[in-house]
């Protein structure tokens, strides 16, 4: 065949095993979501106009509060995760070789599924949980009711805790991968020139770790924004996370409301895409930074 001889043809046929499922399943799936949001290909024939679902959602204050809530939970948990992960990774990196093996326990939550991490948060932070018991035995609280309502405060603190616990090892992994290639002599020189530990951390180490911190922030943010598993275990009803909102529309209401669920998903998708553009820019920066070393 002649077209396989030219370079473009060879590239396309080489990439085909990946491009084909990507186009059919991923792009096709997104297209179907978008179509159904306009009332096309829905299980029930759609009676109204194409933009009905969007009009309904965009006039619903519950949608906006749920969107804002998801944004907030994702933002706070991604920030806490990034901060904790960076700090711990820097500490682990400084451990002598003998202790570094013991530090591998940080990978435990990496293996646990999200719902198990949510379970761990439940065990520790519920009003009858372990933290409450410890507070009681220390005399800080007298009864269960004295314990602050952390899991169902309306602020999504339980989800933030779960995402942070699950995500911190992941952020550590990314940051450590950069630190491995970091030259210790830079720190030694700074110390000899009289820089304090805090100064060294902020002026020398932090800029080096920044690319990994950005990457982990964006990945964790997007995950927290759209994931289902943790909110399903720890979620509060009002305002709920967007994923739970979509789940309820999809499974618990009648089929006529299917376009609404799909319209929310469509908006979530485009919101995520805007973030991914920022992500690929970060990856570029990360790779440029590595080349400079």
């Amino acid at each position: 065949m002649s077209w396989t001889n030219n370079r473009a043809g060879r590239l396309v046929s080489g990439l085909a095993p990946l491009l084909l499922p990507y186009l059919v399943l991923f792009c096709g799936g997104i297209m179907l979501t978008i179509c159904q949001s306009f009332g096309v290909f829905t299980p029930l024939p759609h009676a109204g106009a194409a933009l009905d679902a969007y009009a309904k959602i965009l006039t619903d204050p519950a949608f906006f509060s749920s969107f804002g809530f998801s944004l907030g939970v994702a933002m706070v948990s991604a920030f806490c995760t990034m901060a904790a992960g960076t700090f711990l990774a820097y500490q682990v990196w400084q451990l002598p070789a003998k202790l570094a093996t013991a530090a591998l326990i940080y990978k435990i939550p990496l293996i646990l599924p999200h719902i198990s991490v949510a379970f761990v948060v439940l065990v520790f932070w519920s009003p009858s949980g372990i933290v409450a018991s410890i507070a009681h035995s220390l005399g800080i609280i007298q009864t269960m009711q004295d314990f602050p309502n952390i899991l169902y405060s309306g602020w999504g603190l339980g989800m933030v805790l779960a995402y942070t616990l699950k995500g911190t090892p992941f952020a550590m992994l990314l940051v450590l991968a950069l630190l491995v290639r970091f030259d210790v002599r830079q720190i030694q020189t700074a110390a000899m020139l009289g820089a304090s530990g805090v100064r060294i951390f902020f002026s020398i180490v932090l800029p080096r770790m920044a690319p990994a911190m950005h990457t982990s922030f964006i990945i964790l943010f997007l995950y927290g924004f759209g994931a289902f598993d943790i909110p399903f275990v720890l979620g509060e009803s009002r305002p709920g996370m967007l994923s739970i909102h979509v789940y309820n529309l999809y499974f618990k209401h009648d089929l006529a409301r299917r376009p609404e669920a799909m319209a929310i998903l469509t908006m979530m998708f485009f919101f995520a895409v805007i973030f991914i553009i920022a992500y690929s820019k970060t990856v570029q920066r990360l790779e440029n930074g590595v080349r400079k070393l």
């Binding site: 799936g29 759209g226 799909m262 998903l265 973030f275 690929s280």
Partner: peptide, 18 residues
């Protein structure tokens, strides 16, 4: 970048359509 998106966007967005 495009090929990495399926791991990044919320999986619900394409799974429910599919």
């Amino acid at each position: 970048g495009l090929l990495l998106t399926p791991a990044l966007v919320p999986p619900m967005t394409f799974a429910m359509g599919l």
